[in-house]
């Protein structure tokens, strides 16, 4: 048994169909999407935003977008879950970037945010062995892998990564760029 659970889409729930129903104004379909997807969406948003209230804000906004834009989702051209999470990540990152600048203004002490963050290596363990993301990340040097992982999962900026990893900004940027080239070649 090579396939891990993470690889298998949750059974039964037909997200593309539910989106189609939303486009027709079916509120129950939106609720069904909420029941099926909101817990995981909250988890993704929490990793980015770290605060429950902000994570809920991102999920709330995402569902409002989904309701309004369900008609523009075309199942023939893209995967519904990817669509949903892209909307969520966009929203969460916008909140995060806005917030972190507020924090800057307030001389917020960034150390307080670090503690509940999962480190890059244990995040790696959560990835399915069968997937190419894990296999290809494993080819990167640990510090570069860490930079990419913290950027995606926790939404760290170049500057925050430099601070966290204790290297100059320019180094972080070139780590990321080279890692992306390597990932692209490995995952094509």
């Amino acid at each position: 048994m090579k396939a891990a659970l993470g690889d298998v889409a949750p059974p039964a729930f037909d997200l593309p169909h539910a989106l189609g129903q939303c486009a027709k104004g079916d509120r129950l379909a939106l609720r069904a999407i909420y029941d099926s997807e909101a817990p995981r969406m909250l988890g993704v948003a929490m990793r980015l935003l770290r605060r429950r209230a902000l994570a809920e804000e991102a999920v709330h906004d995402t569902f409002v977008q989904v309701w309004q834009k369900a008609a523009s989702f075309d199942p023939a051209r893209g995967e519904a879950r990817a669509w949903l999470y892209a909307v969520l990540r966009n929203r969460a990152l916008n909140i995060l970037r806005g917030e972190s600048r507020t924090d800057l203004v307030e001389d917020f002490e960034p150390m307080g945010l670090v503690s509940d963050e999962e480190d890059a290596e244990s995040l790696m363990l959560r990835l399915s062995d069968a997937g190419s993301l894990k296999r290809c990340l494993e080819r990167l040097e640990p510090s570069r892998r860490q930079a990419i992982t913290l950027a995606y999962i926790h939404g760290l900026s170049h500057g925050e990564l430099a601070g966290r990893l204790g290297v100059p900004l320019g180094t972080v940027k070139s780590w990321i760029r080279r890692s992306l080239v390597s990932l692209r070649e490995c995952m094509t």
Binding site: G6, Y34, M46, H60, A82, R89, T149, R184
Partner: peptide, 20 residues
């Protein structure tokens, strides 16, 4: 698509009726 496997690794958190 390349990074989407990461989204699957997030913990599921209770999404209550208040948020809905």
């Amino acid at each position: 698509q390349r990074f989407s496997a990461w989204d699957e690794t997030a913990d599921e958190l209770p999404a209550g009726d208040a948020l809905w």
